[in-house]
Every structure is written in structure tokens, then in C-alpha cells.
Write a protein that binds this DNA or RNA. Structure first.
Lengths: 223, 223
DNA sequence: ATGTCAAATAATATCGATATTTTATGACGC
DNA sequence: GCGTCATAAAATATCGATATTATTTGACAT
């Protein structure tokens, strides 16, 4: 059974695609904070077996997006203002560190990657595709950090980035969609980085995060 | 089946105990770095089913102790000198941060917890029980950090602590077991912390880690 | 009415078996 | 001999079913 057209030779393990789907549903708030995650229900929603769902949930536990309760199954991680503030603080410290290390190790190859990911992000804005922009945005920010050559640090930054994104979605309903000029901020970060000005690049990056944070604090306090 | 004596009402999900066993085996090097982790083999070693083993391995993936390969199963995370150095660096930065935050929020209750965990650690040394000491040692170090009230940071520190312990075991075979006076170092850290001297406490803590690190670098370079 | 306990219900955790994929084996042609 | 391809063997990933454990329901006594 499961005759597969030769075209779709994609790498699709049931577990991995369940992981991606669930992750997306939690990040966007489709599965809201604290929600009980019943295996049987998810199994039918995702049209897959119980084992892949369980394994995906286990993996999401490590991303701090899912909590496992004693022997009472899983639930989407709760959200709170203090949790948000912790994420924001850690992000600032860790991205600052990663960015400085990256700049200290600048190579032509890295600079090109930055320009490229930045370009793709701008392009995604023009095209007006939100999900495309989200991906490109993360790619750009991670590219800024990945030259630090510190896989664990990068992993933590990536996790914290995702956790932060989730709060943006949670607050999005009520937020007056930010009027700041995000594009200009990205431009500044890129320029300072290419200039090798670590202080300026880091300060701008952190300001970028903190001001986004302030926009979210108010709506989130109503959680 | 599986008639359980009423006495052993312990919380023992097969997954959780598999998780603990595998984790221990990897930390101590019984499952060496890079080793292929075959489900069937582990299943019989741990005398449990395949599902708990798989789930435990998934969880260990998040602890960076296990890697998942495409669809080729799992293996114990590889070890290398650069990985060790990354862990050491991150630990110094993050524990420094956590310790300073903890000290900044000092309470009588926390001070008592420090004294208590420190005492238990000394006691474990006297008793000569290695595993007991290991547990107590970690408890003491985590207690130093947990007053920062930053669960995510604490989690990261705990992860990095474990990863570091693993390297200590890996190097242990060939290392001339350290002649430093560990106990005195702990004493210094505790005293400075109780005194509220964050600079001294942090400096001592980091020196503690770095000098342990130096002892390991040489044996590890032969990995 | 209200609280308690037991039976019924639902959900989780686990097992055993199967299908799929990867790796190892060996025959065949060059 | 050596590389290539088909086949066999092994291991993984997944499914379906069952046993366990938590939760709900409702009867009963207070």
C-alpha cells in the first residue's frame, strides 16, 4: 500500500512531518498555550499514526513548546508575561555574544551569505508572502549569528527566536500592527555588521528586539 | 500481568526509566561517543519495549546527548575537543550570568538551601559514595544558579553541566585524578556568595570550571 | 443540597507485528 | 580482479491493538 508517485521522493518521515505541523500550529497559536494535546485527536487531524505524534511531541518538549505531564499526556507550553520577558532577556545576551563572535571571525563568504539572506527577506516583503517572509526573516537573523561557529549557542538562539515568534503571534490579534520601519532596522544591522562595527551592530540588534518586545508587552499583559 | 507489589508505587513510566538509564550510560561513556544505538539491542538490554526506547532517545536528542540520523536511527553524540571547548565557554558565560542574578536576588531561604546542598556534598565525600557525590555536586551547583529565577537559563546550565560531566568521564580513564583541592574551591564559592560578593563568587566559579577544563584538555586531545 | 465512593468512560503508555528503508552480500559482466 | 547491479539481510519507522492509568459520572448516604 501507500503507492508513491516517483515525483514525490521527498524526505518525509511521518514523525518529522508531524513535528513540523505541530510546531507550526503551536507557534501560530492554532494550538493555544496550555491546551491539552490529545494523541487521538492529533492523530486524526494530522492523518497519521499515534507513534509519530508521540515522538513529535517528545521532540517539541525539548524546544520548550510542549510540556509533558506526569502520565497525563502532553499540553502546549503555557505562556505568560514573565516567560516572555525571560526569553527576551536571554535572547539579548546570547545573540549579542553570538553576533560579536561572528563579526570577529568575518569572512568574505559569510558577508555574502548575509547580503543574500537579507536580499531574500526584502524580496519576500515585496512579494507579500507572510510565511515566506517569516522563513527569510529567521534565516537572516540566524545567518547573522552562525559565523560564531558555536553550534550549541546557535541552537539556543534559534530556540529562543521561535519562542519569541510564538508570543508575537499570540499578541498579534490585538496589536496595532507595528508601525516601526523594520526594514530600516535590518538595513542598519546589516550595514554595521559588514562594516565590522560590532558595538553598533549589536546595539542595533538588541534595540530591534527590545522595541518589538515593548510592542508586545501590553497585549500580552492581558493573557 | 506485571503484578506490582504495593510497596513499589514509584512513578515509573517505562519511557522515563529508559531515559534515565540511557542518559546515565551515555554520560559515563558506557555508550561511547558516536556509537550506533540500535533499538532492538537497547530494548533487550533495558528489558523493555521498542516504543519507550525510541521515545527516550528522542528526549535525549534535545539534551544533545543523542543524534538522530535521517532515517537511519540514532547514535550517541560524537565528542571532540572543539565541542568540549564550546561547552566550557558557554558554561562560563551563562553560569556567570545566572550566579550574578541569583546573588542579586538573595533571600534567607536561598542561603539556607546553599548551605544545605553544600553540606550534603561534603557528607557524600566523607561517605565515599561516588554516585551520591555526583548528584550532590550537581545539586549544589544548580542551587547556586536557581535563585536567578530564570527557568530557561537554568535548564541550559543544567544541560551544559551534564555535557561537561560526560567529558570528565571520557577523560577519566587516562587522567591523573585531579589533585586540586576541590573542596576548598567549593568553600570559597559558597562563602563569597553568602557574603554577597558577586564578583568574587563568579570569578571563583569560573576559575573552578576552567581549571577542571585544563585537566581534561590533554587527555581529550587524544580522542 | 453536598460530599464521597465506585463504576464507567476516556485517554495514555506500551506491546507485538508489519511495512519500508538501509545496509550487506554476492553474482555477473567488463 | 574490479565495479555494478540485483538480491538478501538487518534495522528502522509505523501501525493496530491492548493493558494501565486518569477522569468523569452518578448513585448513595449524610
Amino acid at each position: 500500500m501507500s503507492v508513491m508517485k516517483p515525483s514525490e521522493g521527498k524526505e518525509t518521515s511521518a514523525t518529522h512531518s508531524a513535528y513540523l505541523s505541530l510546531r507550526q500550529m503551536i507557534l501560530t497559536g492554532e494550538l493555544p498555550p496550555g491546551q491539552k494535546l490529545k494523541i487521538e485527536q492529533l492523530r486524526s487531524t494530522l492523518d497519521t499514526g499515534a507513534s509519530p505524534v508521540r515522538e513529535a511531541l517528545s521532540l517539541l518538549t525539548s524546544d520548550l513548546l510542549v510540556e509533558r505531564l506526569d502520565q497525563r499526556g502532553f499540553r502546549a507550553a503555557p505562556a505568560s508575561l514573565v516567560n516572555f520577558n525571560e526569553i527576551l532577556s536571554l535572547r539579548c545576551v546570547m545573540e549579542d555574544m553570538a553576533l560579536r563572535q561572528s563579526i570577529a571571525r568575518t569572512t568574505a563568504d559569510w558577508e555574502e551569505r548575509l547580503v543574500l539572506t537579507h536580499h531574500r527577506m526584502k524580496r519576500a516583503v515585496e512579494e507579500g508572502s507572510i510565511p515566506k517572509f517569516e522563513d527569510a526573516h529567521k534565516s537572516f537573523h540566524m545567518a547573522l549569528l552562525d559565523n560564531a561557529n558555536s553550534p550549541i549557542l546557535l541552537r539556543y538562539c534559534s530556540q529562543l527566536y521561535d519562542l519569541n515568534i510564538r508570543y508575537r503571534y499570540l499578541a498579534a490579534g490585538q496589536t496595532n500592527y507595528r508601525k516601526r520601519d523594520i526594514a530600516a532596522e535590518h538595513e542598519e544591522i546589516l550595514d554595521a555588521t559588514l562594516r565590522g562595527d560590532a558595538d553598533e551592530a549589536s546595539a542595533t540588534l538588541i534595540r530591534h528586539y527590545r522595541s518589538t518586545g515593548e510592542y508586545l508587552t501590553d497585549p500580552l499583559s492581558k493573557l
